[in-house]
Write a protein that binds this DNA or RNA. Structure first.
Lengths: 148, 148
DNA sequence: CTGGATATTTCATGCTGTCAAGTAAATGGG
DNA sequence: CCCATTTACTTGACAGCATGAAATATCCAG
């Protein structure tokens, strides 16, 4: 029967406001990420994988876990990176079932340039003083349960 | 060789930490959103459109602007919502070129249930006191330039 | 009325994602 | 040792998202 609204009325307005702000940040962050990736002729998924490969050669399986997707999906993404010379597959000498995806030199360069162009981070945060950033950091940490 | 990092060394560690936290929040938010949508047999895009339609019948063109995508893309998303009885197209009496997408009663219900299941907002914020939430809100607002 | 702008759709194409099936290699219990 | 199982990856089929170009219908200004 609760036809009308009521969907948000149980949350206090302050929480609601913060939620909306976070939503805005998420949207903006995502948007800028895709844009930055596109600027380097990469899709978001390709950029994410390339970013993961910056940590060193990684088994396909592990990439899938980190991206929270099926391994078969990673196959395609790495295929496309490979066909552009940004990544390569290596055999894992310790286990011949696994294939290690690794960034090539070109891949590393692209990944670094991309990371450098992710301005979302710097620019809006520049608005805040060191002290404020510290407060923000601690609040976010608490939100995420990083500091129980 | 330039093995060692260096890619982020020009940003101070505090900013870097905040950026990473925001990245984590973005990832978690997105993940939960898709999950909540899937629980109602919707894709993320469909859920977003349905959410926009909660604001009333909306021209296709406007949906595209709000989603920041091409209008031709919206056609497909609304098609799929329509084929499930969650949305419908109406003619705009004022301009016969435009079609207004509108949520059906079933669409409104789904959209409300979905919104109710978006717990990301509430749960982590519960960690914070009212005062802290206020501080957080103000910091986020400043970051977003909402209060110049 | 005519020409140009606007709103939507259709089509072709590419990427992301899932799932089911298949291959290859590791592993462990008998 | 051997076979059954598990694990890692790939392939193929399919759906959805997203873009761009071209078609259609309508609006609007001159």
């Amino acid at each position: 029967m609760g036809t009308l609204v009521g969907m948000t009325s149980r949350i206090d307005p302050l929480t609601l406001e913060v939620v909306e702000l976070i939503g805005t940040i998420v949207a903006r962050y995502y948007e800028e990420y895709e844009e930055a990736a596109a600027k380097h002729s990469l899709t978001g998924a390709q950029a994410r994988v390339l970013g993961l490969l910056a940590g060193g050669p990684t088994p396909m399986r592990r990439l899938a876990q980190q991206l929270k997707c099926e391994p078969s999906n990673v196959t395609g993404i790495v295929d496309r990176l490979e066909s552009r010379g940004l990544a390569e597959r290596r055999l894992d000498p310790a286990d011949r079932r696994v294939k290690l995806a690794a960034a090539t030199e070109a891949g590393r360069e692209t990944s670094e340039r991309l990371r450098g162009s992710l301005d979302f981070a710097r620019e809006p945060l520049a608005e805040l003083s060191d002290e404020e950033r510290t407060v923000l950091r601690d609040l976010l940490k608490r939100m995420l349960g990083t500091t129980p």
